[in-house]
Amino acid sequence: MYYLQLFINGIVAGGVYALFAVGLTMVYSVFRFINFAHGELIAWGAYGVLLFASPPFSLPLWLSVFPAILLVIAIALLQNHMVFAPLRNSQPVTLLIASIGLSFLLRSGLQLYFGSDLHSYQTSFYESIDLGGLMISYVQLAMLCLSILFFVILHLLLSKTLTGKSMRAVSDSMELAGIYGIPTRKVSVFVWIISAVFAASGGFLLALDTSLDPMMGLTFMIKSFAAVLLGGVGNVWGALLGGLCIGIIENMGTAFISPGYKDLTAFVLIIVILLFRPQGILGSTIRGVR
């Protein structure tokens, strides 16, 4: 029963990791670089809610989610416009360094405004349901439902709408897609919005379950990177699978090793995956892996 509980915790956390990983993998598949600042979108999502829920705005927690998501979308579009778009033709490493700088800038901004201490939301939403020995809190239930909802929406977007189809074309080859008259600018805006919305909502949900920490962005960025690698770089459904795997492995792992090493799981996985299966579990194509 103990293991089942850990397994369920793992699935819940993994669903949210998958939300982060989707953004990371979509940005990679279209722009061909690892957005190190992705973690800061997560953290700003969580802190944005705190910002709008506390004075001078004092919105109810649920209402403040929406301005927070808008804020994160604005950050994502701004970073694309100011930094990543001008650097489009540079080497991936130049973009990676720029995104490290960006992440440092955004995180320090967060620390400057909110301080380095842990925060948590003022809410009484922490009751749990007892399912014959299994405890699932409402927060966890919300995390699970929202992850599923987001992935259904993403699936519909990618397969049914023109923008989604264009995005898949652009990720194959931005140049060719441009030649075919696909509006690549519109697609990049679309990718950044999806990435921002998923990161911000996931960040809020995880912060609701645990707490807000200025360093949370880095931790989750590393985890979602592990998820991306596990699922195969550039593969949206691989990111879902990878996120779930990371969540489950990490939570089951706490039964066997000291909880202090919980965050280590993702790092070890990154190195092991890169060594033995750089194309990921699902990836049969070598595309995107050099």
Partner: peptide, 28 residues
């Protein structure tokens, strides 16, 4: 020995993961 098979940004992230592993080891 293992990580040098990777190139470019993958090597970067793997080395970053290594540094965090060292830090967690020292912490625990």
């Amino acid at each position: 020995w293992p990580v040098l098979r990777l190139t470019g940004d993958y090597f970067g992230i793997a080395s970053l993961a290594f540094a965090e592993m060292v830090r967690l080891f020292l912490l625990n």
